[in-house]
């Protein structure tokens, strides 16, 4: 399995000279299974550039796994070329809602007055799936989706192939008002997703100083994400979903703090950056 990050900014795209190193596009990660199947995690603004990159390849089947439907995870969709290609079989996967279908929830954005084209009218062959409670399979990769603590229906994804696992929790506040270190793992949101993962891509939106005034907003502090990764026993931590108000220098300081909190032991936290590629083999 190969991964490439096309967007790792949180909440709002933040392009400009101060965010060049980490990038300003919102959440979007390209995955390729060993069999070549294309899986995309989230449809943030990074999806636009991925669509351009795919133009020469002309993929016939695309699986888009949405963690949730906040705009920063969806707004690239209308500018993703393959969505408008009638030869493409497009599978949307996302968190279930007790009242509204995934298609109708996506259509709230992809329809007038917010967007000129309705999702029902796009030329590609689109199918909409509520993620199942049980593990499912795409192109040889086993995928587990489980609800996690954020604002509104949200899932994290655990993608495994050939014994290697990527955990993706871009928007996650694992505890509100408690202390993660005092909790049994089974009582921690998303533990089943992150447990023993080779790579964990996790929300790291706030500094420890910022978090107290943002409790309940659905995101993690640096201390949260490091503690969470340690409890889950992950081998490698990628700090993801950077706050749009944090420039590159601020992200460097957050990374320094994460490394300090991580301490000794295997692996070292790293910043997710646009263009970063890695393999899980």
């Amino acid at each position: 399995m190969r991964a490439r990050i096309w967007g790792c900014r949180g909440s709002l795209a933040a392009p400009g000279p101060d965010t060049v190193r980490a990038g300003g596009n919102t959440s979007c990660v390209e995955l390729r299974t060993e069999s070549g199947e294309l899986i995309i995690l989230d449809a943030g603004t990074g999806l636009r550039a991925l669509g351009l990159h795919l133009a020469g390849e002309e993929p016939r089947t695309i699986h888009l796994l949405l963690s949730h439907l906040h705009l920063d995870h969806l707004e690239g969709l209308g500018f993703f070329g393959p969505l408008f290609d009638p030869k493409v079989e497009f599978h949307f996967w996302g968190p279930p809602s007790p009242v509204t279908s995934l298609k109708d929830r996506i259509a709230r954005y992809l329809s007038p007055p917010l967007f000129p084209v309705n999702i029902a009218d796009v030329p590609s062959d689109a199918t909409f799936h509520d993620v199942p409670s049980e593990e499912f399979e795409i192109g040889g990769a086993r995928i587990l989706a489980a609800p996690v603590s954020h604002s509104g229906p949200t899932v994290g994804y655990r993608i495994s192939e050939n014994g290697r696992t990527l955990a993706y929790l871009p928007d996650h506040e694992p505890v509100r008002g408690g202390d993660l270190r005092e909790m049994a793992p089974g009582w921690i949101s998303g533990y089943s997703i992150a447990r023993d993962a080779d790579v964990l891509m996790h929300d790291s939106q706030y500094t420890e100083a910022e978090y107290p005034s943002r409790v309940g907003w659905g995101h993690s502090s640096i201390a949260h994400v490091v503690t969470y990764a340690k409890i889950a026993g992950v081998k490698s931590l990628l700090l993801f979903h950077h706050d749009p108000l944090h420039d590159d220098d601020a992200l460097d300081r957050k990374l320094e703090r994460a490394i300090e909190l991580w301490g000794d032991g295997d692996g070292t936290p790293a910043l997710a950056t646009e263009g970063l590629q890695f393999e899980l083999t």
Binding site: L144, A146, P147, V148, S149, V175, R176, G177, G178, P185, G186, W187, I188, S189, G190, Y191, S192, R195
Partner: peptide, 16 residues
């Protein structure tokens, strides 16, 4: 507890 070693999210949120 579920088969994945974690309680379902509604239980986690209610405990919190």
């Amino acid at each position: 507890m579920s088969q994945n070693g974690q309680h379902p999210l509604p239980l986690i949120m209610m405990r919190e």
